[in-house]
Nucleic acid binder design. Sequence first.
DNA 1: CATGAATGAGTTTTCATTCAT
DNA 2: AATGAATGAAAACTCATTCAT
Lengths: 222, 222, 222, 222
Amino acid sequence: MSAQPTGPIGAPERQRDAERTRAEILDIATAEFADRGYAGARVDEIAARTRTTKRMIYYYFGSKEGLYVAVLERAYQGIRGLEQQLDVDHLDPARAMRALAELTFDHHESHPAFIRLVSIENIHHAEHLRTSPILPGLAAPAVDVLGGILARGRRAGLFREDVDALDVHMVISAFCIFRTANRHTFQAIFDRDLLDPDRRDHYRRMLGDLVLEYLTAHVGRA
Amino acid sequence: MSAQPTGPIGAPERQRDAERTRAEILDIATAEFADRGYAGARVDEIAARTRTTKRMIYYYFGSKEGLYVAVLERAYQGIRGLEQQLDVDHLDPARAMRALAELTFDHHESHPAFIRLVSIENIHHAEHLRTSPILPGLAAPAVDVLGGILARGRRAGLFREDVDALDVHMVISAFCIFRTANRHTFQAIFDRDLLDPDRRDHYRRMLGDLVLEYLTAHVGRA
Amino acid sequence: MSAQPTGPIGAPERQRDAERTRAEILDIATAEFADRGYAGARVDEIAARTRTTKRMIYYYFGSKEGLYVAVLERAYQGIRGLEQQLDVDHLDPARAMRALAELTFDHHESHPAFIRLVSIENIHHAEHLRTSPILPGLAAPAVDVLGGILARGRRAGLFREDVDALDVHMVISAFCIFRTANRHTFQAIFDRDLLDPDRRDHYRRMLGDLVLEYLTAHVGRA
Amino acid sequence: MSAQPTGPIGAPERQRDAERTRAEILDIATAEFADRGYAGARVDEIAARTRTTKRMIYYYFGSKEGLYVAVLERAYQGIRGLEQQLDVDHLDPARAMRALAELTFDHHESHPAFIRLVSIENIHHAEHLRTSPILPGLAAPAVDVLGGILARGRRAGLFREDVDALDVHMVISAFCIFRTANRHTFQAIFDRDLLDPDRRDHYRRMLGDLVLEYLTAHVGRA
DNA sequence: CATGAATGAGTTTTCATTCAT
DNA sequence: AATGAATGAAAACTCATTCAT
């Protein structure tokens, strides 16, 4: 699934082609849906940008909606388990929290299409995600690590007690997602590009400070 | 919401009807575009929910896009000058900043359609906002008051120096907008409704704390 | 009707205004129909370019078709009796014929809208002209003078006998009308502007030569 | 009319069907546009008279305008190279010129739709022809043969020197086109059908005489 | 698996005309 | 005589989807 095996000689070539075709369609479709929204994307356009034909899209995905759902699911799969890549057990809670925030920051920055798809899915009231089989697997990875750090910090008397892991996750997500999701109106109104590489480090540190100052505020000082 | 009568008293009835027709179309269209996105909204549907006909939409707005732009502009007009409603000069910088954050929080909470329209406009790369005549008037109101408070706080040695007004505005906006814009995917994944009235005060205070702890962190303590 | 009387003081001003309004509408409508054809012209556009409103067009002309017919009739009235302006009785047949051809040439050159309206009316199979009350008065003026000259020339043994007045009229019309009616495709294909003022005299003489050489060919030489 | 089979024998049936569908649409559309003008023609009507649907028109031609342009281009292609069909080198200049005039006469008589389309295109200021890729190929065929005959005639001292090939082409075109383009107004006013078969030979000879008498007038007599 | 052609149902847009005042 | 608002019918155009080969 992760390493791309060249496979034993004589392996079903056709199947591999099929997989490649599917993947190509998904790539193009991801770009199109992310760029134009669900209703705005065109099956014709997706097909035209693929090396295959429209018929193949229906062969593999059944419908435009089916294709969209596949795109959405693959995009969510991409961030699933993101936090597991992070080994923070050896770090103190504050450092661990900052590392997690920065990891999220970095990941979101490098996956703008995912963020736009999330915006689009919200426009559609998450109706596709809500019925997706991948849904149950999404919550835990996102907050488990965070919850662990938070618990450790509290036990150490470092973090405030009046927020839970979901609240912290929300703050981190809001900050990271806003930069991409609202980039264009922000730029139009304020003439500032939130994704300007020159400002990247500033925002990255800002996020860490924001979360940590908040979590550690007044704690242990009283 | 507050029916501000247009034109001088005694103005021709017809004109008042026209204004009413226009406004009614805009109301319905706002709901439709906010609910389904630009491409997903249907002119037919908007017309059907109005007391007038589809023809009138074209009479007043020229095209679906013209209608959308009118909706978007009116929505932005609604928040323009929001901050001016706030008299914070008599408050110390910290209280003033919290008041501003809470005002923004309250306003965004009560204008979900606006937030969804902003998301939608970002999906379209802000192409309509970018060329709108109202654009130039949007930046100042949003950051002038905030900038003033920030400056006062710094002069008093209370606020950190490494962020500007736009950065703070971004944090507040990100927090407030996320609750509405990403409500559905968040709810689907984590089974938590960010707009649950029972959690409203918690998030309101959380935003104030977040901003203030960040701004005042370490300052004057060194 | 011809001289514009300032009218007795106290004369019905309203009626004069009405006449002026009618005339203004006809002027604009002539330009629009000539420029875009019957189906291509827009009642809205005509009204917009007038100082009056669309309602007036319907008040005066009943319908788009009524307006078009009025435009067409007025245009034809403009050339009616053209030939009567010409006193050719004192000229010998050849000179008289050339004078008539040149008069036609000059008139057509200065009335491009009329020619375009004729083209447009032909596109519509002359259905409006065919039922117009002005139709009966159009034939005689156009060929009576020409017929007289032709008869004189024949009696004098100068002109050939195998053509009648309508044939000659057709040749003159074809030449004059072509310059305006087919100006644009001719220019596009051959890069020659048939209405270039520098070529005007050339074509004028050419028409006279064409008609006269044809009419006098071989006659009396046998 | 002469069904020139497209593509090599054995070409996929589907493609041949496509070509047939395209051609059928073009045939009907030619009739409709020529009959009602660009704005007056109805895509629905064209589709209804076809064995396919309106959707196919857009599939093949993209828009009403695209269809019109295709019709116009095909019509012009039809006369392209007309003159090449004529071998006039063995004829003396006078006979050659008459043969060319008569060929043009015959061709225009048998292509009334083309002439009406030219009128229509002129109503539109040749805007479509002007940007057509076929434009560059239209000039030469129309005047090259004519220019050659004219030059031969001059060298032989038979033709006048004060006109060029384009002038002669204009006279021939004006005569031939007028009969069809202005047929209806002419008939309405003068009650003479310029396309009456009984008058065909008369006009055909008349055109030849007209051109030749003009070209040979006075030459060599001085 | 692959492909161009085809399609039906919708969606936006237009336009001549009329109404209320 | 004049005006802006309103309208219904029709016109152009689009799109996801399926068919024939």
